[in-house]
């Protein structure tokens, strides 16, 4: 490959080029995707881990005659659970590894746009999250769960996944910056996912488990995303399903809140990558 860096005239100093933003972003995305596809641990966390929990829950906690809706709602909760676990565990570890291993000292010597680095990580995280999510729902569907999507699902399902992924990635960057040991990240990711899952009543699918008023399941990002997706994927009556109260977050205000999570998550991520990783480089 020839390059463009050259001095136009021997009397003039050379002019430094920049790599196009898209090429840098793709380089980071490709790097992470390559690592993901060859890691047995990632495959386990993305697929085996949520499916094992789904299978255990169906076998232990649901009656044998549990309906298709019950199976579907459990599947949605574990689909988010799996996405959250794998994104936090993998990307916190990757970020901490880059900081700890000295790779960011190398990156800082290159004319890299920090936003391209972040975009590459995010694309890889989104691919991983969507894969994990889709596999859980597909397996659930193949084993008896049924979904009756509303028209709103076209927008709500991608939006909830996107917001969830942004929040998980932002959290992973915070963890990577604070806990500089990549080897701890899988454990930390799993523990955090379990805490989030149980303290919000199975990601908001069983708020009746919560002793006090469970209003916050329509606010916290993991349970909000799960409940929005429940609303989108099941066009039916939720009475006596354990999902209510509170009412499912079907209004536009909840879409706004989800969008706010995307904005805040991106802001935190940009700040961390720019300040912690690139030492104050402009975007």
């Amino acid at each position: 490959m020839s390059t463009e860096t050259a001095a136009p005239d021997s009397a003039e100093p050379p002019v430094p080029d920049r790599v196009p933003w898209q090429r840098q972003a793709w380089a980071f995305a490709e790097r992470h995707l390559r690592v993901l596809v060859r890691s047995p641990m990632v495959l386990f966390l993305a697929v085996g881990w949520p499916l094992a929990w789904y299978g255990l829950t169906v076998a232990v906690f649901l009656p044998g005659d549990a309906g298709a809706f019950a199976l579907g709602s459990v599947a949605v909760s574990y689909a988010f659970f799996g996405s959250f676990t794998v994104v936090v565990a993998v990307f916190a570890g990757a970020f901490a590894g880059d900081l700890d291993g000295g790779r960011y000292r190398k990156f800082r010597s290159l004319p890299i746009a920090p936003s391209a680095d972040l975009a590459g990580r995010f694309v890889a995280a989104l691919v991983l999250a969507v894969f994990s999510h889709a596999v859980v729902l597909a397996v659930a569907f193949a084993t008896g769960a049924r979904f009756e999507p509303r028209l709103a699902a076209i927008g709500l399902v991608p939006l909830t996944l996107l917001s969830f992924c942004v929040v998980a990635l932002a959290l992973s960057l915070v963890l990577g910056a604070v806990v500089s040991k990549p080897e701890y990240m899988t454990t930390i990711g799993i523990v955090l996912a379990l805490i989030a899952y149980y303290t919000t009543g199975f990601n908001g699918t069983q708020p009746g488990m919560i002793a006090d008023d469970p209003w916050f399941v329509n606010v916290l990002p993991n349970s909000l995303a799960t409940r929005q997706q429940l609303y989108a994927l099941f066009d039916g009556d939720f009475t006596d399903t354990g999902v209510l109260p509170p009412e499912l977050p079907s209004g536009i205000e909840f879409v706004g809140l989800t969008g706010a999570y995307v904005v805040v998550g991106l802001a935190v991520s940009i700040l961390l990558v720019r300040r912690v990783a690139y030492g104050g480089d402009p975007l």
């Binding site: 860096t5 430094p16 080029d17 790599v19 840098q24 990156f107 290159l110 890299i112």
Partner: peptide, 10 residues
């Protein structure tokens, strides 16, 4: 990877 990141990468 580093070839892609450097503007003069070959």
């Amino acid at each position: 990877f580093f070839e892609q990141l450097h503007p003069a990468g070959t």
